[in-house]
Every structure is written in C-alpha cells, then in structure tokens.
C-alpha cells in the first residue's frame, strides 16, 4: 500500500491560505454547531418574542417607534445587536483558547500559513458565521411579521459591518492576552451589555439624559442601529448614512490591522 497520489506540499497564495484557515475552523464548528445555534439564532428570536411581541403589546405605536408597532421597530435593530453579541463571544474565548488552551494556532504557525493569513482567516470565519446566523434570524423575524420591507437586506449588511467593527479589534485584543480570560467578563459587562441596553436598540437614544448621548455615539452599535433602521424603514439620508459607514469601516480596518499585528507578535517570538 503505497500512496498513489504523490503530491508535494506547497505555499498557497494568500486568498487560498486564508480560505484554508476558514476550512479548519469550519471543521471544528461542524461538530459543535448546536451551542452557537442556540446563542446566535434561538436567543435573539426569544428576545424578539418576549420584548417585541410581549412587551410590545403594552406599547402604543408613537413617534418614538417611528409610528410602527414595537416589534417592527425592534427587529431591524435586534439583528444588529445580536450579531454584535455573537461577534463579541466569537472574538474572545475561542481566540484565546486557540492560542493558549488548545494551542491549535501554534500548530498552524509551523505550516506554510503565515500569522497574517491566520488572523485574516479568523476574521473571515467570524464574518461568514455571522452572515448565516443573522440571515436566519431575519427569516424568522419575517415569519413573525416583524419585517416591513426588503430594505431589511440592508439591515443584514449593517449588522455584519457593525459586528465586524467590534470583532476585529476584539480579536486583536484576545490574541494579546496571556490570562485565563478574566478580562472578557469585564468587556461583556462594561462594553457589550451597556451597549446593547443603551445604544438605541430598544428605545430611541434621545430618551437618555443629554450627557450620556455622546458616549452612545462612540459605540459601533449605535451607528449600526441607525444604518439598519434607515435601510429597513427607508428613512436614510445621504450624509448621516455615509458617516456611519465610514466610522464602522474605519473600525474594521484598524481592528484587522491590529489583529494581524497581535497574531504576529504572539506567534513569531
């Protein structure tokens, strides 16, 4: 029994190499999809049911909800907020685990894949995974009657951009950690949760005290929520939309560059 195919190992061009990293992460995911399906699709749907329909039944459509039933007001923002939450999780523990606990990334560093390709692959993977779960959520939301127009496709885009605006810097940060991940609970509690509560997902930001609002404007979630509602309700104006896009894109680009840097520092010492 000799190997019939005789192939030589080779150095792949960057796009192929990045895709191979995604393939590796996908192989893992295929065996463990259940938990992420629960947290990234089932949970947001439960939120939509409880807050959109249950709590929403207590709310009269008003100017604050854009004149819409609460569930329709909530859905385009909820897709952004839950993509962001999933992104926060996917960018923290799994990344630290791959460096520190399982050390699988250290194994990849011994292959022709470079640190840079590995970082890009990790980010692309998070993007693809979020695309699927966000789209699934929107389909369910549509079935529940929470979707008003095809503009919601723009919401999907906004959700992904926003999520990556958080994921990229967070992946960079996770790759630089050498702890057991205690910082992550602080990040969830002091950044992710307050963002979800205050950045306009559940109620308009102008209901907050004036001094809080500038902090809200710094969060990617607020920009994403604005974009998403603008698209879903067709209320977008050119300049604000451009502003949101630029801000979020800048975060993605800066985050990705930082991620490449921290991956390289971690692996090539």
């Amino acid at each position: 029994m000799t190997t019939t195919t005789r192939e030589r190992a080779r150095v792949c061009p960057t796009p192929t190499a990045v895709w191979l990293v995604v393939e590796g992460l996908w192989t893992w995911y295929r065996r463990n999809w259940r938990s992420s399906a629960v947290s990234s699709v089932v949970e947001p749907v439960l939120f939509l049911l409880a807050l959109g329909l249950g709590f929403g039944s207590q709310i009269q459509p008003s100017a604050a909800t854009g004149g819409l039933p609460y569930v329709q007001y909530l859905a385009p923002a909820l897709v952004v907020a839950s993509a962001l939450q999933t992104a926060a999780f996917e960018s923290t523990y799994p990344v630290l685990a791959a460096f520190k606990w399982n050390r699988t990334f250290l194994g990849i560093a011994s292959t022709p894949i470079t640190s840079r390709q590995l970082a890009m692959g990790q980010l692309l993977w998070i993007f693809l995974r979020l695309s699927v779960s966000s789209a699934a959520f929107l389909v369910v939301a549509a079935l529940l009657g929470a979707v008003t127009s095809v503009g919601v496709i723009g919401s999907l885009f906004a959700a992904l951009l926003t999520a990556m605006a958080l994921a990229a810097p967070l992946v960079a940060y996770s790759a630089s950690l050498d702890t057991e991940g205690q910082q992550f609970s602080a990040i969830f509690r002091f950044i992710v949760v307050p963002m979800t509560v205050f950045a306009g997902t559940f109620f308009p930001v102008d209901q907050l005290p004036a001094w809080v609002r500038p902090i809200v404007w710094l969060t990617p979630l607020w920009h994403g929520t604005e974009l998403s509602r603008a698209s879903a309700f067709g209320t977008g104006e050119l300049l604000p939309v451009l502003g949101h896009l630029v801000y979020l894109t800048a975060l993605v680009v800066i985050g990705a560059r930082l991620a490449v840097r921290t991956f390289t520092r971690r692996l090539e010492v």
Binding site: F55, Q58, I59, A64, T65, F198, F203, Q207, L208, P209
Partner: peptide, 8 residues
C-alpha cells in the same frame, strides 16, 4: 427606567 419606562 429611562428607555422602556418612557415608551410604556
């Protein structure tokens, strides 16, 4: 308090 409270 600030958000939902005002809506409801």
């Amino acid at each position: 308090g600030f958000g939902f409270g005002k809506l409801i």
